[in-house]
């Protein structure tokens, strides 16, 4: 992850489904230093869960692999990069369409990218067939009234 930042973390873990909860909780804990609202934190957890699950089911097709997460904080924005070195996506635009899934047999809803896109402020997908996929998401944590000072 390039660029300037005030804080940074990196996580790498095996592509096992029981790491999905670990990943979203770890990112939420890192994000909590921005003092997000409960709703903002829930949005981040859901988006991370979607991206990590995609690496495990689609990228590695439930075989062994490593999922990587990098997070960066700058001012009141958190950037989250989630990547795999799995099979890659042939047509990113189609993959991002609501309800599109390449695995309907697994009762997938095809709503993962749609959720990531609407729960975060920005989402970018980069992928090379046979090399892997990287999803970069950003969310600005809004300053709320609780931050205001009172002068007497």
């Amino acid at each position: 992850m390039k660029g300037i930042y005030e804080n940074y973390m990196k996580l790498e873990f095996a592509s096992k489904s029981n790491n999905e909860a670990f990943a979203r909780i770890a990112v939420a804990a890192f994000a909590s230093q921005l003092d997000p609202s409960i709703e903002e934190l829930a949005d981040i957890k859901t988006a991370v869960s979607e991206a990590v699950t995609n690496c495990i089911i689609h990228g590695y097709e439930e075989k062994d692999g490593i999922v990587k997460i990098e997070c960066m904080i700058l001012a009141n924005t958190i950037s989250i990069e989630i990547s795999d070195t799995g099979k890659g996506i042939e047509d990113i635009e189609t993959a991002k369409e609501p309800l599109y899934t390449s695995k309907p047999d697994l009762e997938r809803s095809g709503m993962g990218f749609t959720i990531m896109e609407s729960f975060m402020d920005e989402m970018k997908v980069e992928s090379v067939l046979g090399l892997g996929t990287k999803v970069t998401m950003k969310k600005m944590i809004k300053k709320e009234a609780k931050e205001e000072s009172t002068y007497v």
Binding site: R24, A42, K45, T46, S49, E50, T53, L106, E107, R108, S109, M111, G112, I115
Partner: peptide, 13 residues
């Protein structure tokens, strides 16, 4: 306390 899109697929099924 938490559900992602996997829950949607499961519930529709």
């Amino acid at each position: 306390t938490f559900m992602d899109s996997a829950g949607i697929g499961m519930l529709i099924g």
